[in-house]
Each structure stands twice: as structure tokens, then as C-alpha cells.
Design a protein around this nucleic acid. Structure first.
Length: 595
RNA sequence: GGUCCGGUAGCUCAACUGGAUAGAGCAUCAGAUUUCUAAUCUGAGGGUUCGGGGUUCGAUUCCCUGCCGGAUCACCA
């Protein structure tokens, strides 16, 4: 039974019957806490067909529903708002359908496939806080789409070639003395990142020397020996010079080993990896064909452009005058390749920061001009930057927050607070370790996902390690508490079946509040999918946990003398725990049995 | 300069896409553990929703305008 559908159809019937005219949309919203009821119908829009004032309209509909629907037990009208109270038997039925459906929260398969790209790092340095937001977001949106009934293909494109990795290679060759992850004990991505920093330092020093010897800043930048070395390596790489390719493979290999460990700890995964070194030449053919078809045009110097002025944008280069590809060319090729690899996908989602909005706008327009009708189902999941209290993250200024370090810090903080609470009695070291990890990462993921992805957000380290209030651990804790109740019920040999639930005759307000939230879970999943927003789920899970804690506080379950009521409350607790678990899973967060 | 985002309590964020007296968390203050886990719960204070116009039964939400912050506008990625 879907409560929302049921109620809407009852209201439709009422409206049609009372005003002898139907209405296509109903404005149904949760009732404010200060009024009685659970669902509120906004009646202002109905005045057009009722030809009555809003209060009178609400009253007539309310009367009808109480008399005829069988599910509305009471109503009250405040201004144009019709507040409805549902009969307790309906709430009990809601609980029954949910506990008897193990797949509640998984919408039926809709036969559609979608590709979601996220992460997509450069291979010259370790992942940082910005990547964490990206990865958690991409992963979570993938989970949300799966729950909505889609088949999801998670992919990324690894930017493994170009001047950035050559910089690390040049610095390593100059001053690395053959250092390896094994010899240094450094994680591979951090080792390569170390040489990227060394490159930058050396480069700057060389520039100031050159400026001191009379060169302009621009000239110095070009002539600095280390930069010339990196540029030369890029040329050699493109010419497939064996030694250069070998070094490139070695250093990228170190990075991948490092990334694998980081992804594993983050709990994210990918179905297929695309590498820029494989795809950067793609798209060139397409662009040349586009010139022949008259979609693109060539300038005198031989460069190829697309004219987007009729779409309110500028002209954009697609092939350089020397015939080489740019980023856009590659992305055109990669997009087409992906639709060949996964012919059933209807579209793809690109999880990329909002600084690339213009790029994707252009990309989708070009694909559209090329005649790919899937282009209109491509979506740039654009998210805001993560700021620090000290301002923007700047890798050159050393203010980046490293992903590995941050996850470790969160783990340790979880451990510190757990020990402080004295919650580890009878817990093995191994279980304790898993618990700290679960809590630490739960806090971090929740912190980054609770904000609307579109918005720029502030990462305050002292706030992110909070385990109280609007946090992941608060919700995990609620789950653990419920599990304790379920264990106790088990030990008392309390088992619930349908007839027990139906024997309950009256509910407490706290129970109805919880059931209302439970009944709206699937709508929240749809909303989150439509908006590409894990924040919808984060807010929902928090509301649910809060509602349960209020219930938990006010009603001691095992003191109840009426056995049917007691069983009802156990079943209710079970349902809440399940939905907490499922919602947090949509955010990539695990829940503990005890904490 | 053009285009696009954003501005809500001291701080970090919500507000069901135009609905009720704008809500949470943190922080501050005051309370609640012979009870199923106090990482919890209850209560208090805290607002010109950046300013100014407009649209209508009704605006944080839509339109215009000004101010502030950010992104972007490369033969970079």
C-alpha cells in the first residue's frame, strides 16, 4: 500500500464529488507540528472550481473525506489549509506493508540504464578534500539511481597524460635518486605528489634566477630548464619514446596503487575505467567529419572551430592549427565511445565541479549538433567548491586537505570519542577498529553530503568531527540503540506477526510522526534522484532518527503491559532501523550493531 | 566588461519548487539518567530572509534594480 497514492486518490474523489469537477494536481504537504493532523491539503488553488472561500472549500472537502473515505478520521481547517488526521488502522497498515516487504525502499526496475562518471583525478598528486566531495557525491547519486530502479554504470576518466605528470617525472628524474614507494615507505600517489611539489619549487627558484639575470617574467617561465625538461618529456611521450613511456608507466603505476587504497577506504568503486592516454586522440575523426558536413568550420591557419553564437555562446576551438586535439575534442570522442561500449544507456551524468559548467554546456551543444539525440540526456552534475575556514584550498600554498590524512584523522577522532564515552566494554580490538572506521567515515561522508551539492560549502574541521546533532554518527547511534532493543526482544522471545499489529487500537503521536516519515521514504528517493541530491536523503535520515529518539525517550517499550502494543513498538523500531540503514546506504555510510 | 551561480539566527545549513507565525544543528543558558545505550531528550533566548521596487489571496522562492561574494569567458585541462 502506498499511502501517498491512496490519500491523493481519496482526495481526488472527494473533490470531484463535491465540486463536480476534477483537478489535475493536489498540493499536499506535511502538517505543521503546531496543528493536529499529518497531511495538509492547501485549498487556495481549489477555490477556482469550488467557487467558495478557501475556508469553506477546505471544510466541505474535509467533511466528505471523514464521511466517505474510510481513511481520514478527523480534520481541522486553519485559513485555507485542510489538516487531515488519518485513522490509526491506516497507520498500522502502513507499518504492516513496510515490515512485510523486505525490499521497501527499492523501487521497481524501470528498464533504463544510465552512466555516472565521477572522481576522474589527475595522476600527479594524491586525492584531496575536493575529490572526497566529488567521490561521495557521485557514489551516492549512483546508489540513489539504483534505488530508483535504474541500472547504473559507474565510470571515471583518469587524466593520466599531459604536462602535469611530466612535471612530476622531470622532478623525479632530476632529484629522485631512484626513490620508489618501497624504498621510501611512501604511498605511491603521495610519492609522485612529492615530486610535483619539488617541481614547483625548483621551477619558481629558476624563474627568479632568470628574472634576476634580466629576463622578463614570461620569458623566464618559458626558459626555466626544469620546465623545458617537462615539455620535452611530453613531446617524447607523444612520440612514444620507450624510456619516457617506461618512466610514465612506472610512476602512474605507483599512483594507481595509491589511489586503489584510497578508493577502498572511501568505499567507492567503478565498473570501468577510461584513461585519457587511450582516448585523447578520439574525437578528431568526428570533428573532421563535422567540417565536411558543415557543422564546424576551418580558419585560414587550419584550426577548426564551432560557432555557438546562435546559442548565445562564443566560437570554440576543436582542433589546433597543428592538427592536435584539445580537451573538448577528447570529450566528444569519449562520450561517443561510451555510448558504443554501453549501447543501452539513455544518458550520462558527469560529476564535475562547477568551474567547468561552460565546458559541459558547450560539449552537450556540440554533441547535439552532431546529431546524437542522447546528448539531451547528458547532465553535468555540477557541485560547488569546498572552502576552508582559512579560505580557498590552494595546492601551491600547501593548504590542501589530503584525503588519506583526513580519513585517518576522522578515524582517530572517532576512536578518541568512543573511548571517552566508555563504550568499548566486551568489544574485540578488531570490532573496535571497524567501529571507529565506520563512525569516522560516516561523520565525514555525512558532513560532505548533507549540503545541497550545487552550493559551495565550508569545511570546518572542528565541526566535521562532531558526532552529535545533525551528523552521521547521530543517526548511526540511533540505529545501534534500536538494535539493542531488537536483541532484547529476541532474548525475551518476542516475535511479531500481522495479527499482533492489527490488535492495536490506538497510537501515540510520536508513533504517528515516525510512521509518517517512514511512509514518505520512497518519495524522498524519487525527489533525491530527480534533484541529483544526496542532501535530500541526509536530511530525511536525520529527521527520522530525531523522530525515533523522541519516541524512544518518551515511551519505554518493555514497560508496556498490553502485549499487542509492545509488539507493535518492536515492529515499528525494526522498520525505523531498516530505513535508517537503507538511507545511509544511499549515502555510502554503514551502520553499526552497537556503538 | 558579458554570462552563470550564490547572499536566510553569532556560525554551518533547511524550507517539499509560490503556501500557515521562516525551521534544524552547533554555540549560550536552564532542566531530564533506580528504566530499552545521556553520542540522547525537554525548554529558553536568538531573524529587516543583503537593500529598494513590482507581480497576487499569499514571495526566502518569480520579475526589475542596486550592493556584496564566487565561477567562467584560452589553439589549458
Amino acid at each position: 500500500m502506498n499511502l501517498d497514492h491512496l490519500l491523493r486518490s481519496e482526495i481526488q474523489k472527494a473533490v470531484t464529488s463535491v465540486f463536480s469537477q476534477s483537478v489535475d494536481t493536489l498540493q499536499l504537504q506535511p502538517t505543521n507540528a503546531e496543528f493536529e493532523g499529518s497531511h495538509t491539503l492547501v485549498c487556495f488553488p481549489l477555490t477556482k472550481i469550488s467557487r467558495k472561500g478557501p475556508e469553506e472549500t477546505a471544510k466541505v472537502v474535509g467533511e466528505y473525506l471523514v464521511a466517505n473515505s474510510g481513511i481520514v478520521s478527523k480534520y481541522n481547517v486553519v485559513k485555507g489549509f485542510l489538516n487531515l488526521s488519518l485513522s490509526d488502522s491506516i497507520w498500522i497498515e502502513v507499518l504492516h506493508t513496510i515490515v512485510s516487504n523486505p525490499d521497501y525502499g527499492q523501487l521497481p526496475a524501470n528498464g533504463q540504464e544510465v552512466m555516472i562518471e565521477y572522481s576522474s583525478p589527475n595522476t600527479n598528486k594524491p586525492l584531496h578534500l575536493g575529490h572526497l566531495r566529488n567521490n561521495f557525491l557521485g557514489y551516492s547519486v549512483s546508489e540513489i539511481y539504483k534505488a530508483s530502479g535504474y541500472t547504473v554504470h559507474k565510470v571515471q576518466i583518469i587524466n593520466d597524460r599531459g604536462i602535469h605528470i611530466c612535471k612530476s617525472m622531470a622532478a623525479w628524474k632530476l632529484s629522485g635518486n631512484g626513490e620508489t614507494p618501497q624504498s621510501s615507505g611512501l604511498k605511491g600517489d603521495h610519492l609522485v605528489g612529492k615530486y610535483y611539489v619539488i617541481f614547483d619549487k625548483t621551477y619558481k627558484a629558476q624563474i627568479s634566477d632568470l628574472i634576476a639575470s634580466g629576463l622578463s617574467e614570461e620569458e623566464a617561465g618559458k626558459q626555466a630548464p626544469i620546465m623545458q625538461m617537462a615539455s620535452e618529456m611530453l613531446r617524447q611521450w607523444e612520440q612514444k619514446d620507450p624510456a619516457t613511456i617506461e618512466l610514465w608507466k612506472t610512476m602512474n603505476g605507483w599512483v594507481y596503487t595509491g589511489f586503489d587504497a584510497t578508493y577502498k577506504r572511501m568505499g567507492v568503486d567503478f565498473e570501468k575505467l577510461y584513461y585519457e592516454s587511450d582516448t585523447y586522440l578520439l574525437g578528431k575523426e568526428i570533428v573532421l567529419q563535422g567540417v565536411e558536413k558543415g557543422i564546424f568550420f576551418k580558419k585560414e591557419d587550419g584550426s577548426i572551430w564551432v560557432d555557438l553564437t546562435s546559442d548565445g555562446l562564443d566560437q570554440k576551438v576543436l582542433l589546433r592549427s597543428d592538427g592536435t586535439s584539445v580537451y573538448m575534442t577528447q570529450d566528444i570522442g569519449t562520450a561517443i565511445l561510451r555510448f558504443k561500449d554501453f549501447p543501452k544507456i539513455s544518458g550520462q551524468v558527469y560529476t564535475v565541479g562547477n568551474e567547468q559548467e561552460y565546458h559541459f554546456k558547450v560539449l552537450f551543444l556540440i554533441l547535439n549538433k552532431l546529431g546524437y539525440d542522447w546528448a539531451k540526456h547528458c547532465f553535468h552534475l555540477s557541485y560547488g567548491m569546498v572552502d576552508l575556514p582559512t579560505g580557498k584550498m590552494k595546492s601551491r600554498e600547501g593548504t590542501v586537505v589530503d584525503a588519506d590524512e583526513l580519513m585517518e584523522d576522522m578515524h582517530q577522532e572517532a576512536e578518541r570519542q568512543t573511548r571517552e564515552h566508555g563504550k568499548l566494554e566486551g568489544v574485540s580490538d578488531q570490532d573496535a577498529h571497524m567501529l571507529f572506521e565506520m563512525i569516522g567515515l560516516g561523520a565525514l561522508k555525512f558532513f560532505l553530503l548533507k549540503v545541497d551539492p550545487k552550493k559551495r560549502m565550508l569545511f570546518d574541521p572542528s565541526e566535521s568531527i562532531q558526532l552529535q546533532g545533525f551528523t552521521g554518527p547521530f543517526i548511526q547511534y540511533t540505529h545501534a540503540r534500536i538494535k539493542a532493543i531488537l536483541r532484547k526482544a529476541e532474548s525475551l522471545d518476542i516475535h511479531v506477526n500481522a495479527s499482533d499489529l492489527k490488535a492495536v487500537t490506538s497510537l501515540e503521536p510520536a508513533e504517528r510522526d515516525g510512521l509518517y516519515l517512514i511512509s514518505s521514504f520512497e518519495n524522498k528517493i524519487k525527489e533525491a534522484a530527480k534533484d541529483y541530491s544526496p542532501a535530500v536523503i541526509a536530511n530525511y535520515a536525520f529527521e527520522l532518527a530525531k523522530a525515533y529518539n523522541q519516541f524512544y525517550q518518551s515511551i519505554p517499550i518493555f514497560n508496556e503491559e498490553n502485549p499487542a502494543k509492545l509488539k507493535f513498538r518492536v515492529a515499528f523500531s525494526y522498520a525505523v532501523a531498516n530505513i535508517i540503514k537503507r538511507s545511509l546506504k544511499l549515502l555510502g555510510i554503514e551502520v553499526p550493531e552497537r556503538m
